[in-house]
Amino acid sequence: MKILVVDDELDVKALFEQRFRKEIRNGLVNFAFAFSGEEALQYLEQYGHEAVLILSDINMPGMSGLELLDKIKHGQLQPIPIVMMITAYGDEENFKAAKRLGADDFLTKPVDFTVLKEKLKITPNG
């Protein structure tokens, strides 16, 4: 499974790679990273079919996570990828907006990796 992670924090890459080090080692999952909405769209246009899941921070400078979600769900991409949104805790407004725009699942910040792994149905060590 190839997952595109979108966030404006550069260290997210190191964090995910370490948190999922065993899964990556075992070839269960493969990560790509984009640090802005624009970069994510570019990546999807190029390798669209490979990305099946996007973790996007709604609160991003430039194109926001919600805009990106809208573009992914209502754009030219085929097949339409699954999108999981990360929202700040208790942010009802963004939760509803994301749901309306077609987000498939939600995570609250800070990310609980155990919950994320369960959602991705990846079990450690295969």
Binding site: E9, Q18, R19, A88, K109, P110
Partner: peptide
């Protein structure tokens, strides 16, 4: 503040 704290927590757990 939340973002750096998340990193501190995550990397120390790691």
């Amino acid at each position: 503040i939340q973002n750096p704290l998340n990193f501190v927590n995550n990397f120390s757990e790691l």
